[in-house]
Design a protein around this nucleic acid. Structure first.
Length: 480
RNA sequence: GCGCCUGUAGCUCAGCGGUAGAGCACUCGGCUUUUAACCGAUUGGUCGAUGGUUCAAAUCUAUCCAGGCGCACCA
């Protein structure tokens, strides 16, 4: 137990801070006030006074606010952070008012404060606000984590579990984490921009449904009490979006959350974000061009150029993406010309991991493509190929597209085949969606469709090793 | 689901059968126009949980909990 003159009695940092909080209240200050008017953000001040020479004072009074990240020399120097960045505050110990003295005594790193004062630049070149008054904006009861990096000590956290479970701490202390989420948001914004500018419309389709179709995956099951029935979280947006195509939306897409009841890994989170888009009167090759253009656009906006490093590996979007058929790709490595499931297995085993630079692999076996149109080339059609591509980057499947199957008779057969597999025990076989077939019977025009994992794209563009780094609150087991 | 590794102070870690340690943070004092400020002192822990072995367990062991990585499944 610590016994001080101020009678702060505690064996616990939180208790200490609680005690300070009470003292702030007792002095008539609201530690959790309702609003605050600032005159500038840190970034605005740095910009406004970029020409102020070292050691010069301005005659400008500003009011700023943010979180105290560090304090030196008995609150003489304070690093105040807002969303834009840092501004240093200065308060001379000798000339400090009594109120300020006692207030600083009750503040801690992590507290939110506002401050008003004259702007100057120190002889060492740091833009600084000479504190005249301080407002408490939120007392922080929890100490912020710090790490030692070589000789440098800084706010930070090494424990990845805490970073994911308590993302707010991660965001406070790790600028990189905040930047990643910012870039992800910008990326999604730019995808929408790109598509909206080409006449696409975004329509939301159901997440909750009576069956989960459109992909081969196990769904999450939930229950609707009033209807007295189990319902499923969607595993794809495909079948609903194509119904919209039937309805006459010629360019439609949805960016939304998908749920798949599968394992968790560095590349998999049970809920993730996909984009699927459908464009009438085009085919799988139209989708290749669109995908390539979309990725270039987004890369340029997020990274600022068309090449970047992912986990130390240079990735280049400058050149036209390579395009090679699955048969050719496999033959090049194994010398064998295969088809069907054997082809796909050989591809996954021998080729996939080698596709570091963006590569479109096209012409897929019909067995694993129940929603794609049979190949227009009679020979390839006879060998059981459909018009489909997947885009690989860094050995990972990044996008998936077809000439959409529009013949309701063929679609019925494909679904029947899937139903057989389901009966044979394949939990992940597609469900038979009879209303979808009815929709096709009303007529789906020739359509190209493409799907892309937003999280995985965000990983590439922000050089994130784990999908959890680009998801604000990744799925975690509860503690106890 | 399987395999390997990890869990000790607020943070980062050492200790690996014999009285729980270090640096930083916190608190106090000194000094101060600093940016890891500096100097000194104090404080702080049911060693992830529960059993077992032992005179003695943070240490050995079993089970469980949580996490990381790899494999499998998948996007």
């Amino acid at each position: 137990m610590v016994k001080t003159e101020d009678n702060i009695e505690s064996s616990n940092l939180r208790e200490q801070r609680l005690s300070k909080l009470e003292k702030i209240e007792q002095s008539g200050i609201d530690p959790y006030p309702y609003e605050f008017q600032r005159s500038h953000t840190s970034e605005q001040l740095l910009e406004k006074f970029s020409a102020l020479p070292d050691g010069e004072k301005s005659d400008f009074i500003a009011t700023v606010c943010g979180r105290v990240h560090n304090q030196r020399n008995d609150w003489m120097f304070i690093d105040l952070y807002d969303e834009d960045g840092k501004l240093q505050l200065f308060s001379d110990v000798d000339t400090r008012s009594e109120e300020l003295k006692s207030l600083f005594h009750l503040l801690d790193k992590g507290d939110y404060i506002g401050a008003t004062g004259l702007i100057r630049r120190t002889p060492r070149g740091e833009l600084t606000l000479d504190v005249q008054s301080v407002t408490v904006l939120a007392k922080s009861l929890q100490p912020l984590p710090e790490i030692i990096e070589g000789k440098r000590r800084r706010l930070g956290i090494a424990d990845v579990e805490t970073r994911y479970r308590q993302r707010y701490i991660d965001l406070i202390v790790n600028p990189d984490s905040k930047e990643r989420l910012r870039k992800r948001a910008l990326m999604i914004h730019e995808i929408r921009n790109f598509l909206n500018n080409q006449g696409f419309i975004e329509i939301e389709t159901p997440i909750l449904g009576t069956e989960a179709g459109g992909a081969a995956a196990k769904p999450f099951v939930t229950h609707h009490n009033a209807l007295g029935m189990d319902m499923y979280l969607r595993i794809a947006t495909e079948l609903h979006l194509k119904r919209l195509s039937v309805g006459g939306f010629e360019r439609v897409y949805e960016i939304g959350r998908i749920f798949r009841n599968e394992g968790i890994s560095i590349k998999h989170n049970p809920e993730f974000t996909s984009i699927e888009l459908y464009q009438a009167y085009t085919d799988v090759f139209g989708m290749m061009d669109l995908t390539e253009n979309l990725l270039r656009h987004v890369c340029l906006k997020i990274v600022g150029k068309l090449d970047f490093e992912y986990q130390g590996e240079p990735i280049n979007f400058t050149e036209p993406f390579q395009r090679i058929s699955m048969q050719d790709a496999v033959e090049r490595v194994t010398g064998k010309r295969l088809s069907g499931i054997a082809l796909n297995d050989a591809f996954e085993e021998h080729v996939e991991a080698t596709l570091i630079q963006p590569t479109f692999i096209y012409d897929y076996p019909v067995e694993i493509s129940p929603l794609a149109k049979k190949h227009r080339d009679p020979e390839l059609r006879a060998q059981g190929f459909v018009e489909r591509f997947e885009l690989f980057i860094y050995g990972r499947e990044t996008a998936n597209a077809f000439s959409e199957l529009t013949d309701p008779r063929d679609q019925r057969e494909r679904f029947l085949e899937q139903a057989k597999q389901k009966e044979a025990g394949n939990e992940e076989a597609h469900v038979f969606d009879s209303d979808f077939i009815t929709a096709l019977e009303y007529g789906l025009p020739p359509t190209g469709g493409m799907g892309l994992g937003i999280d995985r794209l965000a990983m590439f563009l922000t050089d994130a090793a784990s999908i959890r780094d680009v998801i604000a609150f990744p799925t975690m087991k509860p503690l106890h």
